[in-house]
Design a binder for these strands. Structure first.
Lengths: 243, 243
DNA sequence: CGTAGGTTTGACTGATCTCAAGTTTGGTGG
DNA sequence: CCACCAAACTTGAGATCAGTCAAACCTACG
């Protein structure tokens, strides 16, 4: 994807505008942000645990995830990211990365100096609120993931993860809610749900048998959204209507 | 515990001062915050999921936790809190609670209007940074919990939870790092680690057999802190040196 | 001293993992 | 355009970690 300046600003303004009311001066201030656009391959590391971070990345196109590693080598994905997401807003105040950020697909990223975003958030209360809300919703999603991984059985857990992905895509105005191509492998689903890829595969088949989804490899269709939500124990309130 | 105004301010100033440099004007501004002190019994709900929140609670004395419930009734604790912690800073920007907050022991709480904290954080950059860091470290801990619950086996998981609890108590300057009385039951540990109380009990015995801890009911002693950290796969970097 | 909540122990069950072997698919180079 | 390859997906069989159920056993507190 060839991204230009306007893509960056319109993406950013759309994102922040969903989180708080922005006035003309806010929009103007955002348009003065410096940035650098880069294309990345799938599976590129954007941030590695322990890195000292000075730029935040705005995902313009493609998908990414954040993950951590356990001592025994087990990998845990802690969040998925869709176009429009600003990754690593935490580095506005915490200099060192406590996790990795990696692309899932080829991706276009706008790198923006964290200090500039911080200054902007401080100077313009609406933008500060939007950034703050984004950070807090992020945290709310982590809490839901702790619940998901800690207390739901495999089938429910996977279904929940899919529902969240779908709901966030929809909220961001990306593509159809009923049918889409998963940008992630079953291995990724396993790493996000604390399961093994083999078991994920079995449970996806079980979800299809239950009539909650229709699926062929990564091509996914939600047969019945209310039923899917029930199966998934999914209630979108934790997304605070704006993830 | 009979708390007075000075306890509230000194607790708050100590807490925020660990997160950012505060100058005299910051301290003065904090001292102008209004609040209301209340005593709570053990197991009191301070916040219930769905509540519209206007006050943040500063935990002056006692212990508390935040938890969510799955559709099948399973409970997942998502964080533990120790004296000095400010609970629910998320309500500075998100009006509805997405989880419950409950005391674990009898507790003394200072209730502070969220709007006042928000105004203070906006007016005084140092305080804004401190509050922001607290929120971000909170989120970092959630990420670690996702990893803990998702990818570590039962023994490691419990050990990790204990290490974190210990490390945070120590960072807050509370009591001895080697020996302390757990303010939580094995049921609580189970709800925090996504296990059952029965299995928690067995794993605590296993940790004792391994020589990592010495324990009699809730009286806990870390026999060998380096060994305990190894057993727990614990590395405090995710606490960003100030939880 | 009786009771309730918490802890401990045992025997059995079951969800998920592990290991191992195919199968399908999309991409790459001839 | 076809052949091949690597990655992802699929399926089966057996092992294991953690759950379930049930019963004692403490111990603090009223």
């Amino acid at each position: 994807m060839a991204a230009n300046n306007d893509d960056v600003f319109s993406t950013l303004i759309r994102k922040l505008g969903r989180l708080a009311e922005l006035d003309a001066a806010d929009v103007q201030a955002i348009r003065e942000l410096p940035f650098q656009i880069k294309s990345h391959d799938a599976n590129d590391f954007l941030v590695s645990e322990g890195d000292q971070i000075v730029n935040c990345c705005l995902l313009l196109d493609g998908y990414a995830c954040r993950h951590k590693e356990a001592g025994d080598g087990g990998r845990q994905i802690v969040s998925f990211h869709i176009p429009g997401d600003i990754l690593d807003l935490q580095h506005l105040l915490l200099p060192r990365a406590d996790h990795n950020v990696q692309t899932l697909t080829p991706a276009t990223i706008a790198w923006i100096p964290a200090a500039r975003i911080k200054a902007l958030a401080r100077a313009r209360p609406n933008i500060g609120d939007a950034v703050g809300r984004d950070i807090l919703i992020d945290a709310s999603i982590f809490r839901e993931w702790v619940l998901n991984v800690g207390r739901r059985d495999a089938k429910t857990r996977i279904a929940h993860m899919l529902c969240e992905f779908l709901a966030r895509r929809q909220a961001a105005g990306l593509g159809s809610p009923e049918r889409f191509e998963l940008p992630i492998s079953q291995e990724h689903i396993a790493d996000a749900t604390g399961l093994t890829a083999v078991h994920v595969n079995r449970m996806l088949h079980a979800l299809a048998r239950d009539g909650a989804i229709v699926r062929n490899r990564r091509d996914l269709r939600i047969a019945d959204w209310p039923r899917m939500q029930r199966v998934a124990d999914f209630d979108a309130h934790y997304l605070h209507a704006a993830a």
